[in-house]
Structures are given as structure tokens and as C-alpha cells.
Simulated assay, not measured.
Amino acid sequence: MVSLRQPSTLPIVGVVADARTYRHLAYLLIAVPLGFAYSMLLTVGVGFGLVLSVVVIGFGLLFATLIGARLLAGVERSLANALLGTDLRRADDLPDGDDGALAEAKRYVDAPSTWRSLGFLSLKFWVVLLAFAPVFILASALPLAVAPLRYPYEVQFGEVNGEPVTWAIDTLPEALIAVPLGVIGLLVALHMVNLLAYATRQMAISLLGAQASATSGPG
């Protein structure tokens, strides 16, 4: 009896039929605004905290930044579990300490998970920068892949020396030529999405908490 192979397991093109690909894409699209927000918050918190460290308010701002990083790491843990296939739990590494505000603050400063959270949020900005490449390729390739359904129209690929780079598709032969180019672009972009999601997943496993159970990596 011949068993049919699932489309998602096919080499190269299977990425289109794999539901994980679109979860990874959703993660990267969500990561773009979050990454910029994290960068701004950390820059303001750490920057102003260091500048104002000559007075008490600076230390308070730095500590608030660390606590904020732990809270935001919880958001990132939930996103990774939902969209990157992880099963992360919050790290339970807060040392026992005496009562009191200073003792409580020291517990958070001493916890490795506090600094790992800060590290993940700092690295997230670079994930966002890398995510622009597959998103741009997708935005450029998708109109080419469906060119026979919508020509005539003009595709814009960006700018060179301030001048737009365009391709005016006015005839059916041009539209048919555009289709394989668009399909190749889509495949390249989706594989880039999975690769970047895999790297982010490993980063999350290393920095955001303990993995509750072993899960398979992205395709």
C-alpha cells in the first residue's frame, strides 16, 4: 500500500504547507513593534538611570528597569510558547532573603533570570532588524506570484540613489514570467522566516526559563 507524503514534509516547497511557518511569521510580525518598544524602554531606563545614579532616583530607575524586564520576559515567554513551539516555565531562581525593601531588591538583583531577561530583550532588537529582510521579500514576491490575476500594474522593489526601482507588467507574457520569480521569492522568504524563528526559539530557551518538555525544532 502506497502512503501519501504530507505536503509539509516535502523538501523546499513543504514550507508553504507547514502551519508552523505561519506561526513563525506571526511571531516576527508581532516582534517588530515589540522590539522597538523594548529598545526604547531599555535605552531610557538604563540611560537615564546611569545618568541620574549620582542621586537616589537613578538607582530607583535602574531597579524599575530590571523589574520591567522580568515582566516583559513573561510576555515573551508566552509568545514563544504560543508561536515558536516552546514549553517554557518561569525560572524559579529568586534566592530566599529577609523581609524589607532593600532585601527584596537584592533578591531580584541576585537572580540570574533578571539579567537573562534583560539580555533577551536587548537581543530582541536585532531579531527585529533581521526580520525586515524576509518581510520585505514577501511583500515584493507576493504581487509577482499573482501577477496574471492583476496585471497591468507596476511593482516597486525599493529605491536606488533616491530613484524607485520598478517593473511595469503590462502584458500576459510579462505576468507569466513574474510568477516563477514570485514563487522563488516566497519560498526564500518563508525559509528565512523559519530560520530566524529557530534562532529566536533557541535564544528564548536559553534566556527565558526552563523548558518543561522536549519539543521538536521548526521545519
Rank of each mutant, 00 (worst) to 15 (best):
Asn194Met: 03
Gly60Ile: 07
Tyr27Thr: 04
Asp93His: 11
Leu144Met: 15
Leu186Cys: 04
Ser3Gln: 13
Leu121Asp: 08
Val128Asp: 10
Pro7Phe: 03
Arg107Met: 02
Ala131Ser: 13
Leu187Met: 06
Phe59Pro: 08
Thr86Lys: 08
Ala212Lys: 12
Ala101Asn: 10
Leu88Gln: 09
Thr21Trp: 04
Thr114Asp: 00
Pro152His: 01
Asn81Glu: 02
Gly162Thr: 02
Gln211Thr: 14
Leu4Tyr: 09
Asp96Asn: 09
Gly162Asp: 03
Val75Ser: 09
Leu72Glu: 11
Ala175Trp: 08
Ile57Trp: 12
Ala69Lys: 00
Leu4Gly: 05
Trp126Met: 13
Ser140Asn: 13
Leu129Glu: 13
Leu149Gly: 11
Ala26Gly: 09
Ala131Asn: 04
Gln6Tyr: 04
Leu94Asn: 13
Ala82Ile: 12
Leu66Phe: 14
Val135Thr: 13
Ser113Arg: 00
Phe125Glu: 08
Ser8Thr: 04
Asp87Lys: 13
Phe136Thr: 15
Gly68Ile: 02
Leu52Gly: 15
Leu25Lys: 01
Gly74Ser: 06
Arg90Asn: 06
Ala82Asn: 04
Ala145Glu: 08
Gly35Ile: 05
Thr21His: 03
Gly97Ala: 14
Gly219Arg: 09
Val46Leu: 14
Asp96Ile: 13
Ala141Gln: 05
Pro33His: 01
Pro33Asn: 01
Arg5Thr: 13
Val146Gln: 14
Arg20Ala: 06
Ser140Ala: 15
Val193His: 03
Gly49Tyr: 08
Gly68Glu: 06
Trp126His: 13
Leu186Met: 03
Leu142Ala: 11
Leu102Gly: 04
Gly209Asp: 07
Ser39Glu: 08
Val109Gly: 14
Leu190Arg: 00
Val15Asp: 02
Val160Glu: 15
Glu174Cys: 11
Gly49Asn: 08
Leu207Asp: 05
Leu28Gly: 01
Glu159Met: 06
Gly35Asp: 14
Ala210His: 10
Ser140Arg: 12
Pro7Leu: 09
Ile12Asn: 02
Ala199Asn: 01
Pro180Glu: 10
Gly217Val: 02
Ser3Tyr: 11
Thr200Cys: 10
Leu195Ser: 07
Val127Gln: 04
Phe132Ala: 13
Val109Arg: 14
Arg20Phe: 00
Thr65Ile: 06
Ser122Pro: 01
Gly49Arg: 05
Lys106Pro: 00
Trp115His: 12
Ile169Asn: 05
Val155Met: 15
Leu207Pro: 11
Pro148Asp: 06
Met203Trp: 01
Gly162Ile: 02
Val2Thr: 12
Thr65Gln: 11
Thr114Gly: 00
Gly209Met: 11
Ala103Leu: 04
Ala101Gln: 11
Glu104Ile: 02
Val15Gly: 00
Pro95Thr: 03
Gly68Leu: 10
Leu196Gln: 00
Ala105Phe: 13
Ala210Cys: 08
Arg23Lys: 09
Phe48Ser: 15
Thr43Glu: 00
Val13Lys: 05
Ala204Glu: 05
Leu190Asn: 01
Val179Glu: 06
Phe157Ala: 15
Leu61Asn: 02
Leu41Gly: 02
Leu121Glu: 08
Phe157Arg: 14
Gly85Asn: 07
Gly185Gln: 04
Asp170Gly: 12
Asp98Ile: 08
Thr65Asn: 12
Met203Thr: 14
